[in-house]
């Protein structure tokens, strides 16, 4: 039995069957049992996703415990990491997510940490722009002009001092940059469709945890 479950064909059969129940009712009017299976499959995926999160806890704990037991440089930080994670889990599971201690940790560590990590990027973008936005050729000039007009349009002070920059910036964002983003969207969609076809053809089994073996020439 286990050899059947382990087989590539078995997993591929699951993918094909599942895909049928998702695609078919979307394009063709289908009887209720089929749409029921479709709904169940989508809901089940949500359940699987929520269980998948638990796996990350195991991975993190194992890695950090190993660092602590082997006394790797900086091990006290690992202890801090798993300590806080498990403290929050124990408090959250036993007392609930609205418990005072849980919200205290969230408000003190997680929310400000999360916000700061992304806010730091503004510094890197500033210093990187100062060092790299140099007019060396036509391409870099265009890059600079694109950024310049949009920065002017975004800043109320820019619009106030140079009112004619605003419409140029808006035009660039709503037409030029939009056209580029549209191309990215179309390209990503085509990529997604190709991926779906390759998955159904059994060419992307690494996505389900099967590592592709190198085929002989």
């Amino acid at each position: 039995m286990s050899s059947v479950i382990r087989s590539r064909e078995f997993l591929l059969a699951i993918i094909i069957a599942v895909s049928f129940f998702i695609y078919f009712p979307y394009f063709i009017e289908s009887p209720k049992p089929i749409t029921d299976i479709e709904s169940w499959l989508v809901s089940t995926t949500v359940v699987i996703a929520s269980f998948a999160v638990m796996v990350s806890l195991y991975t993190m704990t194992r890695r950090e415990v190993m660092r602590v037991t082997k006394r790797v440089k900086g091990w006290p930080y690992s202890l801090l990491m798993i300590g806080l994670a498990w403290f929050m889990i124990i408090v959250g599971v036993t007392l609930g997510k609205d418990a005072v201690a849980f919200r205290f940790c969230a408000d003190s560590f997680i929310l400000p940490g999360d916000a700061t990590i992304y806010a730091i990027l503004v510094f890197y973008m500033t210093s990187a722009a100062a060092r790299t936005f140099k007019v060396r050729d036509l391409e870099s000039l265009l890059l600079l002009l694109g950024a310049f007009f949009v920065l002017m349009q975004q800043a109320p002070l820019g619009e106030y001092l140079f009112p004619w920059f605003g419409p140029i910036g808006s035009w660039l964002v709503n037409n030029l940059a939009m056209a580029a983003s549209r191309v990215f969207t179309i390209s990503a969609t085509l990529g997604g469709i190709v991926l779906a076809i390759r998955l159904l053809a059994g060419k992307e089994m690494a996505m389900v945890g099967l590592i592709a073996r190198r085929e002989k020439d």
Partner: peptide, 15 residues
């Protein structure tokens, strides 16, 4: 490290 640990804990509890 505090941030990473806390974020994992929170995600697990909410799920």
């Amino acid at each position: 490290n505090i941030y990473v640990g806390g974020a994992v804990g929170m995600t697990i509890v909410v799920s």
